Amino acid sequence: MAQRRALATVFALALTLSAACGTTSENSGQNPQPGAAGGDACAGPDGTYTIGMSQANVAEPYRERMDDDIRTAAAKVPQFTVEFADAQQDNAKQVADVENFLTKQIDLLIISPNEATPLTSVVAKAYNKGIPVIVLDRKVDGDAYTTWIGADNVEIGRTAGKYVAEQLLPNGGKVGELRGLAGSTPAKERGDGFREGIRGTNIDIVTSSDGDWLREKGQAQADAMFTANPDIEVVYAHNDPMAEGAYLAAKAAGKEKSLKFIGIDGLPIPSGGLKAVEQGRLSATLIYPTAGNEAVETAKQLLIDCEEVPREQTLTTELITIDNAATVYDEANS
């Protein structure tokens, strides 16, 4: 591994790459950037590779599922060994986790950042060392990474807003918002998109609180929200666990039948959003792919196939209501 890294440095200084290396589409026709494609790290199908996966936390079911999807997909690639680190929603710990991976001289980094700005520098450090970096779900600042894989959170928020405006509150009304972690890009984008979706309607977001993506905090924030704003009719939560927490808070107050709840994630597991919609606790959710399978496939393209990959890979989403929840769940588990 160390010998391959040393050779990579020599090649980078000489600004020469083999024909198989390629560049990202964004850098096509320019001098290759460090970590821009898998060429320097790629030893082909005869190589063996250690991948470091830095997860923001595993307290969220979505992130636990992301790790499981990466683990399952990587098990099908005999050249891959994946090491996982849990940052526990702690930016400093996640920085240290990535630094530890660099000390171990990993061949590729996958990271789902806790927050964007605090993780930008260490991600750039890995990238500038010539290590391909795959950023999942949440973003970092700037463009010092190989590829980002995730869904369009603005569009997800916009779809949620339109659903509330057209189906839940067609005559207008009051919404309480449970946001994700303030410094994470999906929280801002899902909030911005929702506001676009309800623009021009008589819907008011009367309060917004940070639930940090967690069910327990979402429940506590919703409880306070209902006390301060008893006229709330819909809770828009930035993920399903917070939406379920809001439902529990409403149930404890005897208000669950008079309120509607919408979340995001739509995990196809018994405790996930698909079942919550099917069972009537949530009015809707939106599928938010974990990108675990796509991350491993991209790692294979970079390390084994020596192929270029796009700078961004946007995954599709889907609105889930009572009309399609059972079908989508069954298809996901077939």
Rank of each mutant, 00 (worst) to 15 (best):
A144I: 02
N100P: 14
L178Q: 03
N128K: 13
S112W: 09
L109D: 10
E196N: 08
R138H: 15
N202P: 01
N171F: 02
D192G: 09
R190C: 04
Y145K: 06
Y127W: 15
I106G: 02
L109P: 08
T185S: 12
V98G: 01
T147Y: 00
D192H: 11
N171C: 01
A182R: 14
G180P: 05
E196G: 09
T185P: 14
Q105I: 07
R195Q: 12
K139D: 07
I106S: 01
V175D: 01
P186W: 07
F101C: 03
Q94Y: 13
Y127H: 15
G157D: 00
V164T: 01
R190Y: 05
S121P: 08
N114Q: 14
I203Q: 03
P118W: 03
I110M: 09
K139Q: 05
D152M: 01
P186R: 02
R138C: 12
G191A: 11
D143Q: 15
S112I: 11
A116L: 05
V95L: 07
R138K: 14
V98P: 00
A187G: 06
E99A: 09
T146E: 02
D143N: 14
E189H: 04
V154L: 10
I110V: 15
I110P: 12
E189T: 06
T117D: 15
G180E: 10
L108N: 03
S112A: 15
Q105Y: 07
P186S: 09
I156T: 05
L119N: 02
